[in-house]
Amino acid sequence: MEKEKHHIVPYKVYFYILIALITLTFMSIGITKINLGGYSVLGALVFSTIKSVLVLTWFMHLKFDQPFLRFMVGFVALLFFAIIFITFLDYYYR
């Protein structure tokens, strides 16, 4: 098997990502301080999702990996949401 090319990520990129992650953390704290009613959970989860995408793409190198891994990460996420959705078909309508 030929050796796959390895991408070396510069340190400063990791640093920028960290700054973005910390900013997003404070933003998610901020948004839950505002009274949005039922939407504040949604707000906080949107920020968490953005953060996790950043971690997955840069820290976990998905950006430089084979597309199959990216596809499977998406698949696992979808699978999880489908399970939650179907379970809520029970609890929401009970």
Binding site: T25, I29, T32, N35, A44, S48, L56, F59
Partner: peptide, 23 residues
């Protein structure tokens, strides 16, 4: 080891708002 550590981070990213940020 790095991937595993990021996983731990990833889970905390969701645990934090779900437990500490309920208003």
């Amino acid at each position: 080891a790095g991937l595993y550590w990021h996983l731990v981070d990833l889970i905390w990213i969701f645990l934090f708002p779900l437990f500490y940020l309920i208003h």
